[in-house]
Simulated scan of single mutants.
Amino acid sequence: MNTESDEVNLDWVPARGIQLRKAGVQFEAVRVDGEKGRALADRLAAMTGGDPGPVVEEASGSRAVYFLVPVGSTGHRAWPDGVTRLTAGPNRVSFIPVPALDGTTWPLSWRYPPTGSDRLVHALLLHAALADD
């Protein structure tokens, strides 16, 4: 890992390659596929001065974009069609792909890398940005 990751103690980011993280432990995720997800990530970045929180994108398949959000922050609100919540709960287990900060991680990469161990995407802001679509 690079010096930046050492400074902020990102123990949930793998040193190399890709790992799956169980939703509900360090974070959960909201997944939006394709160009809609990429545009949403860039809209959030514009709204937050370039630091929307950690956002992972996939280069193949559905070209999913994963917004890493705090545990428990996606419930109690209706999400639009095309949005998948990756959460944990009774009879529900989800896994979120997380790439290393450097090296070969294809088909995953960081659209917006993590900037701090407790810095995640703000779920309410994400929800509001989706409503602006």
Rank of each mutant, 00 (worst) to 15 (best):
E4K: 08
S5C: 04
E7I: 04
N9Q: 09
D11N: 08
W12R: 01
V13E: 01
A15E: 14
A15Q: 10
G17V: 04
Q19P: 00
L20G: 07
R21Y: 00
A23C: 04
G24W: 06
V25D: 08
E28K: 02
E28F: 02
E28T: 02
V30Q: 00
V32L: 06
K36V: 12
G37V: 07
L44E: 03
L44W: 06
A46T: 08
M47E: 14
T48W: 04
G49Y: 09
P54W: 08
V55M: 08
A59M: 13
G61V: 10
S62P: 05
S62G: 04
R63S: 14
R63Q: 15
A64N: 13
Y66F: 15
F67D: 09
P70D: 13
S73F: 08
S73C: 07
G75P: 03
G75Q: 15
H76R: 15
P80S: 10
P80L: 11
V83L: 07
T84S: 14
R85Y: 06
L86G: 08
L86M: 14
A88C: 11
P90F: 13
N91T: 06
R92F: 08
R92H: 13
S94K: 11
S94Q: 05
S94C: 15
F95S: 11
T105S: 14
W110F: 07
R111I: 01
P114Q: 02
T115K: 01
T115M: 01
T115R: 09
G116P: 01
G116Q: 03
S117K: 10
D118N: 11
R119K: 11
H122L: 02
L124M: 05
L125E: 10
L125K: 08
H127G: 02
